[in-house]
Design a protein around this nucleic acid. Structure first.
Lengths: 239, 239
DNA sequence: CGCCATATTGACAACTGTCAACTTCCGTGG
DNA sequence: CCACGGAAGTTGACAGTTGTCAATATGGCG
């Protein structure tokens, strides 16, 4: 577990042309409030592998992902790991009401975040129903994703898990305007395994099987869905 | 899947001595607002096995559990089932922002709920930061539970799953003032299996093993934890 | 070119699932 | 009051998916 490498940044100057603006917490705000919120935040950057925060640490900041991918995970005492999700641009990290972080987060590749001191953010949000409603919306979406993932973890075969993961990843990428023929997978096999409740070997074997069956094509730069209907059927649990 | 049996109720008259008051959404409200909210709600009752709402149905109401237990679950097309959680008194069902129910809910034993029409509740909450913050708090707690459950589903053995479930259930019961030597388990073995990603046979065998090992005692009325430290160790993933 | 992390593949083991029989528990009704 | 019947739970034998261990291949980067 690498120590976090944090580059101090400046206050956000240019929220109005932020690439994550449309999906992020700040989508709820008008120009004036956006500028006020920007006063509270600063941009921080983490290099690949750096830990942004660790489970059970006191949470002193909230974050909004600006660019890059993070893995969010929980560890058991014997070092078994469950990745509870991957965070992408627009995702909000941290929940008011809970004093500690519920999971650890580290950067997969270079990541930039908007950092909000917890106290000042809470004060700012306290009497802004628009922002509070936006937080409820994001939390609700996150909860729905978590519940869908429970179905995957509890009730699906390895092949369905991989197909489901790929379809879900495709949908998330296209949701933030990053859709495309070839789909980058910034995380490693071990991350995928720890996300899907599998081992790295089973992940590898299953990718190989899907490729043999002509469902996907594995490239260094990512994965191509060759037989999307088949992948979607597996993902939905049909067959 | 039984058709829901709904008994029409009256507007809540007596929120001030509601047994779920302390844990529910309404804990955030003062006397005046509580009375206003009560005007929007009514009590409804469901008999054992009744479906309160079904996944993908348009959500027209929110609910706050007043008494009883519900199972919240998602189904795959081939009828595999994942129970994403059990709802107890104080739990809030439904999320503003999502048009449809994300899961189905049915009563385990008799259940009573406070029902809020979605529209009027949303309007009521819209400009009440106290209530909005309370919703964020409850959603956050739910999300934390979901993430903890992902660890269970993805990374734990059958024995750890059962121990973890029992410890978690004990804690939830004591959190609503229902702690006690013998711990009622209103749900059936099949429900537990579908919650933990196991089969009914594995659940049964694991209960038997825990009983043989002197960790628990199974009674018709519930379960007694005989060796709590051992159960907690299994639950934490130690050993 | 060579090293190290990552990924793939194979052989085998183990945990959990499947199928089936049997038991227990209750509520119903003769 | 006891007998019956169905639902729920338990247990056993066996199978299969996935995990474990180990060897090999690949790929990025100095």
């Amino acid at each position: 577990m690498k120590i976090s490498v944090l580059r101090e940044g400046t206050h956000c100057q240019s929220c109005h042309d932020c690439t994550a603006r449309g999906f992020a917490i700040c989508a709820a705000l008008d120009k004036t409030k956006l500028r006020e919120l920007a006063q509270l935040s600063r941009h921080v950057r983490f290099e690949s592998g750096a830990t942004v925060f660790a489970q059970a640490n006191i949470a002193t900041s909230f974050f909004s992902v600006h660019a890059g991918t993070l893995r969010l995970y929980k560890l058991l005492p014997d070092s078994r790991r469950q990745i509870v999700g991957f965070a992408l641009p627009g995702d909000f990290l941290g929940l008011p009401g809970l004093p500690q972080h519920e999971f650890s987060a580290d950067a997969i590749g270079r990541v930039t975040l908007c950092q909000f001191p917890k106290e000042s953010f809470a004060t700012f949000a306290e009497n802004r129903p628009q922002l509070l409603r936006r937080m409820i919306e994001l939390a609700g979406r996150e909860l729905a994703r978590a519940q869908e993932h429970m179905v995957l973890l509890g009730r699906r075969s390895a092949e369905e898990k991989i197909a489901s993961f790929l379809i879900g990843w495709r949908d998330r990428l296209s949701g933030i305007g990053r859709g495309g023929e070839i789909m980058p997978l910034p995380m490693k096999r071990l991350d995928i395994a720890d996300h899907l409740g599998l081992t790295i070997e089973t992940v590898s074997r299953t990718f190989s099987k899907l490729e043999r069956d002509g469902v996907i094509q594995s490239l260094a730069s990512g994965v191509v869905l060759l037989d999307t209907p088949r992948a979607e059927a597996l993902s939905a649990g049909i067959s």
